Simulated scan of single mutants.
Amino acid sequence: MKRQLIPYDPKLKQLARNLRNDSTFGEILLWKELKNKQLHGYDFQRQKPLLNFIADFYCYELNLVIEIDGQYHNHEEQYKLDVLREVELVKYNLTIIRFTEMEVRKDMSNVLRTIEQHILEHNDKSEF
């Protein structure tokens, strides 16, 4: 599949690097499952700048963004920013899957099952 180039603000590169070095426990746990093409051979990146945002996890082959919502996502202001982000990312045919920090920490099997279900529904070459 030809890689879709999604523009990003170059100023976000350093912030993304900082976020990779200061990940939440949920992000660390999920990264252990996604890194090195462990999930059915798909290449995921973490803290990936896209447009004016930084996605927690991104897979260009699947046009998939995975977000882990921490406690701060319960605030109305952050919710509005999340909606704005999704509207912008969907314009690039990206799918956004959201999990809470607690879901990732306490129910990794269902988190991975949800991601695998997306793979099955959106990719003809899936081999399970």
Rank of each mutant, 00 (worst) to 15 (best):
I115E: 01
L5Q: 15
E116W: 02
C59H: 07
Q38A: 15
Q47F: 04
L29M: 12
E116H: 08
D69V: 05
N63E: 11
D69Y: 07
Y58W: 07
Y60F: 09
L30M: 06
D69N: 14
N21T: 09
L81K: 15
T100M: 01
Q45I: 02
F57W: 06
T24M: 02
V83Y: 08
P10K: 14
Y8L: 09
T95G: 00
R85Y: 03
N110Q: 10
I96V: 15
Q4F: 10
I6T: 08
A55Q: 09
N93F: 13
Y8H: 15
H73F: 04
E27T: 06
F53H: 13
D107V: 09
G26D: 03
T95Q: 09
W31P: 09
N63L: 05
K80D: 02
L50N: 07
V87D: 10
L81T: 06
R113E: 04
Q45R: 15
E127L: 15
E77P: 00
E101P: 00
L19P: 00
Y92S: 00
I66W: 06
V90Y: 07
I96F: 00
E127I: 14
E127C: 14
D107K: 12
S126Q: 12
N52F: 03
Q45M: 10
L12E: 09
Q47N: 07
T95L: 02
E27H: 07
T95H: 12
D22E: 15
R46D: 02
R46I: 01
Y72R: 08
F128N: 05
K125F: 15
R98F: 00
N93S: 14
A16I: 11
